[in-house]
Simulated assay, not measured.
Amino acid sequence: MKNQQDHIHIFSGEIADYWIEDGILFSQSKPIKRTVPLIQENIELVKKITQNQAMPLLIYLCKSPVPDKETRQFSREQLSQVYKAMAMVSAPGLSQLIMKMVFQFQKPPIPIKSFSREESALQWLQQFK
């Protein structure tokens, strides 16, 4: 995970911590099971942080329990409301597993790509700023 500098404000949520750097929203996910109410709460937090502007997101994934079908569907529907694109940084295989679970039968509503290195993810996200 990127070293968070002292001058960066960290917004702490139930399922992730967030901060903004150079027009990109960063997220450190937490190992908690996602539910519709938690996703709703998180969407409100993100909208507050970004002042209701969709932004590119770089998310550092961690292993967490698999959400139910309703939560996965709700998450899919909300993505384009808050993010322009999503770069997922994780150990090999984890982000592919999440993509398979959440987008098994549908194309993602925003550009989403998996990375094992933060530098590559940041470079890809630049086009969405």
Rank of each mutant, 00 (worst) to 15 (best):
M1S: 15
M1Y: 06
Q4G: 02
I8Q: 13
H9Q: 15
F11T: 10
F11D: 13
S12W: 02
S12T: 08
I15E: 07
I15F: 00
A16T: 02
Y18A: 13
I20Q: 06
I20F: 01
E21S: 12
E21A: 07
D22I: 09
D22V: 02
D22R: 06
I24T: 12
I24C: 05
L25K: 03
L25H: 01
F26V: 01
S27C: 13
S29H: 06
K30S: 05
K30L: 11
K33L: 11
K33S: 01
K33A: 13
R34V: 00
V36Y: 00
P37A: 12
L38P: 00
I39A: 04
Q40F: 03
Q40H: 01
E41I: 03
E41Q: 13
E44Y: 02
E44M: 07
L45D: 00
L45V: 05
V46D: 04
V46P: 01
V46K: 06
K47F: 14
K47A: 07
I49K: 03
I49M: 06
I49T: 08
I49Q: 08
T50R: 08
Q51C: 12
Q51M: 15
Q51T: 14
A54Y: 10
M55Y: 06
P56R: 09
Y60A: 04
Y60N: 08
Y60D: 06
S64T: 03
K69P: 02
E70W: 01
T71W: 05
T71K: 05
T71R: 03
R72H: 11
Q73L: 07
F74A: 03
S75M: 11
S75C: 12
E77A: 03
Q78S: 08
L79E: 15
S80Q: 14
Q81H: 11
Q81E: 11
V82Q: 09
K84V: 05
A85T: 09
M86E: 14
A87W: 00
M88K: 10
M88N: 00
V89D: 05
P92Q: 12
G93T: 04
M99K: 11
V102C: 14
F103C: 11
Q104L: 09
Q106C: 13
Q106E: 08
K107L: 07
K107S: 11
P108N: 12
P108T: 15
P109N: 11
P109M: 07
I112F: 05
S114Q: 04
S116R: 04
R117W: 04
S120T: 08
S120I: 05
S120Y: 03
L122F: 02
L122S: 02
Q123S: 13
W124N: 13
Q127N: 13
K129G: 03
K129W: 10
